[in-house]
Design a protein around this nucleic acid. Sequence first.
DNA 1: ACATTGACCTGGGAGC
DNA 2: TGCTCCCAGGTCAATG
Length: 271
Amino acid sequence: MPELPEVETIKHGLKPHLERAVVQDVIVRRATLRWPIPDNLKDLLVNQCILDISRRGKYLLFKFITGTLLIHLGMSGRLQLVSTRQPLKPHDHVDFIFSSDKVLRYNDPRRFGAILWTHAPIEDFPLLKSLGVEPLDHEFTADYLKQKACNRHADIKSFIMNSHVVVGVGNIYAAEALFLAKIHPLTPAGHLSHDQLITLVDAVQKTLQAAIRAGGTTLKDFVNSQGTPGYFSQQLNVYGREQLPCVQCGSLLLKIKQAQRTTVFCQQCQI
DNA sequence: ACATTGACCTGGGAGC
DNA sequence: TGCTCCCAGGTCAATG
């Protein structure tokens, strides 16, 4: 479900409600997500105060004195603030209870998500350690991409979706950014000119920032922490628009498969 | 070291 | 109506 803008939207929605809140109870109804949820999660969290909520890639990080809770939403995860009176729905796997009318509820039909805990400094956590740069940080530059892409034969779309290169760019925003940059998605990453890389960095950042401003993209079921959808789908130029006219030139958009993921692009505009 | 593939899961829609 | 097949916003592990 979520790419960087969706996770950022959720983080933004949770911060004012949960920072400095104290966990009263934790209920795990189903502990088998992508990895097992720690079986002592309740002991780790009860009576502990959330000091800070941040994001690294698509991971939400809840900082406590004793360590950090990491939540990844996978493809279908949701985090919503609800009341204890809210009836349970299918796939409501975990509740973090703060008060009778403040429950952080994790729902995930496909269970590709993860809820993990680490006592260690977050930069030492294995899953985060090898992640690439944040796309909205100043280290995400054409020079950085050039150095990473050197001698790479992977196509540029798979390359910018590779979290060891840059985090947070999933299938929707990779396609949108390449359209904005007028770059053909099958171009080998190492073949892009310096000017193209400058354009690409700018396009990724503009796309993500616009999506964050719109509250993320709701294709079918994304909702933020308050239960409202995102509106960036109205601004999608290529994703989900195969066989429809390009907004720039009017020719029909083409759908291909890259690394088992669908890519839609314009053969005329993207060279 | 890099590129490719399979794996993990459920639900919804298309087609028969 | 019901079956089968394919598709979906992610990403790690195993394989060449």
